[in-house]
């Protein structure tokens, strides 16, 4: 299947000289959830805004559903729903009218049943006649999503969807995103919460200083760059490490009750067998073992540090 979005050699420089996007190329597959991860000001929002037509690129091309965003902007844009980062809705209008307006704006025929379904799925149906200004922050954010979904988009952009959102709502949003994916909607979300990317994404793109550092399947990414920690609970605490164990990347924790071994899962040898033998030789006995995959956060930091170096 051809990619639903294809970005090639996209550049954006502002008049001030700031380079917001530096030769970004990216294919987004139909039906996937792609998380764009990066620190503040990395270029995530600029990338999304360019695809949606809010920012004019300096050079490069983007197609959505095979339609060029400049020459066939109508066909391209009608496939896209955008949920912006800031809460921006008409304060005096009702929830239902706001969604109706968005649907009309995208040239779609009036469909009250569909809008009811969207509002119900976002728990907004009870509030359909309330004015937007009367809603809580979380509900306003849901209205933004309802607006974006009002015209049956094939691609949904969520720019920092859970920034400043409480835990309950965050979980609800994650559920919603999964439901949408099940319906075949492609979802691109930006976040700087690594937990979010880890929870939801199929693939992860890391952006920093306008450059797309990598795009990789989440599991593969974590395997590739992931390190593991082996926690060893000792029978009896030790105060210092014997010299025979000096070559291992070991740290003592819990007042000498736990030994932590850091190793690379991708290395030819993990060194675990040898370590256990050497521990036994040094007279240290282990009561329990626990190994942990390093989190995406560490992966991310490793990448960014690599950038700086």
């Amino acid at each position: 299947m051809p990619p639903i979005i294809s970005v090639s050699n996209l550049n954006k420089s502002y008049a001030s000289g700031t380079v917001a996007l530096d030769d970004v190329s990216l294919d987004i597959e139909q039906g996937e959830i792609l998380a764009l991860l990066g620190p503040n000001g990395a270029g995530k929002t600029t990338l999304i805004s360019t695809i949606c037509g809010l920012v004019t690129p300096t050079s490069g091309t983007v197609t959505v559903g095979g339609h060029d965003i400049a020459t066939e902007f109508r066909a391209a844009r009608s496939l896209i729903g955008l949920v912006p980062q800031e809460i921006t809705i008409e304060p005096f209008e009702t929830v239902l009218n706001t969604a109706k307006f968005s649907r009309g704006l995208f040239g779609k025929k009036r469909d009250d049943a569909y809008l009811e379904k969207v509002l119900r799925s976002l728990s907004l149906w009870d509030k359909k006649d309330s004015r937007n200004m009367e809603l809580s922050g979380g509900m306003k954010r849901r209205v933004l999503i309802a607006k974006a979904l009002s015209h049956n988009p094939r691609v949904l952009f969520l720019d920092e969807p859970t920034a400043g959102v409480d835990v309950g709502l965050r979980r609800e949003m994650w559920e919603l995103v999964k439901e949408l994916r099940a319906e075949g909607v492609t979802i691109i979300l930006t976040t700087h919460y690594i937990e979010e990317a880890e929870m939801m994404a199929d693939r992860i793109g890391v952006i920093n200083k306008g450059r797309l550092l990598l795009v990789e399947e989440k599991d593969k990414l974590m395997k590739q760059l992931g390190r593991k920690h082996l926690k060893m609970e000792l029978q009896s605490p030790i105060t210092t490490l014997p010299d025979s164990l000096a070559d291992y990347a070991l740290t003592l924790a819990d007042d000498g009750g736990t030994l932590i071994y850091d190793y690379d899962t991708q290395a030819e040898r993990t060194g675990i067998t040898r370590l256990i033998a050497d521990l036994a030789a040094a007279g240290i006995s282990v009561r329990d073992l626990d190994s942990q995959q390093s989190s995406l956060e560490e992966v991310f930091m490793t990448l960014l540090e690599g950038e700086v170096a």
Partner: peptide
């Protein structure tokens, strides 16, 4: 008004000339 409240994004991203 859409500029002021920030809903301009929707107009600019709509499939309209």
């Amino acid at each position: 008004f859409p500029k002021f409240i920030g809903t301009m994004y929707e107009l600019l991203s709509a499939p309209m000339s």
